[in-house]
Simulated scan of single mutants.
Amino acid sequence: MRAVIDNTPIAMIKVSVYRDRNLMGKAYTNDEGRYTVELPKNELVTVRFDTHHSLTNAEEWHPSVVANVISDDDSPLDRYLLKSGHGAGPESAVDALSGYLFAAAWEDADYARTAASRLSRLKQTSKVLQEIQQTLQEHFNAQA
């Protein structure tokens, strides 16, 4: 399992696994972008890829969330993350916004500061996505 951009591994991406609202496990990607999280088999989980506000890469990447994953050792889950400040197609923008929506339910003021900064650099092409981005931006600004 890896976190990558342009097939280049990304180190120090926080990978968190949730079942319902409970954190089941977490790990950070290594220099090869690989990570391992030990989970019980056949659990329905959500996997979140994001930076951590205390790390040097805190503002470099937009988050990504994969919902409704069945935990199984035989199912690799690689993610291509969108670099902050880079253009995005609508699919990548929706993926990043979903990551921020997920984070809005869990995170605190420390996270909100970096989220607000990253969101301000997310380029949208759709009016609907711009409105969602603006609402999230206001949320994280208020939290920070």
Rank of each mutant, 00 (worst) to 15 (best):
M1L: 09
M1F: 07
A3T: 14
D6C: 07
T8K: 15
P9A: 15
P9C: 07
P9T: 05
I10C: 03
I13R: 00
I13C: 03
I13H: 01
I13K: 01
K14Y: 10
S16M: 14
V17F: 03
V17I: 14
V17P: 00
Y18Q: 05
N22Y: 08
N22I: 13
L23E: 14
L23F: 05
M24Q: 14
G25Q: 03
K26C: 13
K26R: 14
A27W: 01
Y28I: 06
Y28P: 00
Y28K: 07
D31V: 07
G33I: 01
R34M: 08
R34K: 13
Y35P: 01
T36M: 07
T36N: 10
L39W: 03
K41H: 13
K41R: 13
N42G: 05
N42E: 14
E43M: 15
R48P: 00
D50Y: 04
T51W: 02
T51Y: 03
T51P: 04
H53W: 14
L55W: 10
T56G: 12
T56R: 11
T56K: 10
N57E: 05
A58H: 09
E60T: 08
W61P: 01
W61T: 01
P63Q: 02
P63V: 03
S64M: 11
V65P: 00
V65G: 03
V66E: 10
V66A: 08
A67T: 11
A67Y: 10
N68G: 15
V69F: 06
I70A: 06
D73S: 13
P76H: 06
D78T: 10
R79W: 03
L82Q: 13
S84W: 00
H86W: 08
A88M: 06
A88L: 05
A88K: 06
E91A: 15
S92L: 15
S92G: 12
A93G: 07
V94N: 07
V94P: 04
D95Y: 01
S98L: 12
S98W: 05
G99L: 02
G99N: 02
Y100W: 00
Y100I: 04
A103H: 00
A103C: 05
A103Q: 09
A104K: 10
A104P: 02
A105E: 12
W106G: 15
W106F: 15
D108W: 04
D110G: 10
Y111R: 06
A112H: 05
A112L: 06
R113F: 08
R113T: 11
R113L: 12
T114C: 08
T114F: 06
A115L: 03
A115K: 02
S117I: 09
R118K: 10
R118T: 14
R118Q: 08
L119P: 05
L119I: 04
L119K: 03
K123N: 08
Q124K: 06
Q124M: 15
K127W: 07
K127F: 09
V128F: 10
V128M: 09
L129R: 09
Q130S: 15
E131I: 02
Q133H: 11
Q137R: 11
Q137E: 07
E138H: 11
H139K: 11
F140S: 01
N141K: 13
A142W: 05
A142L: 07
A142R: 13
A142S: 13
Q143Y: 06
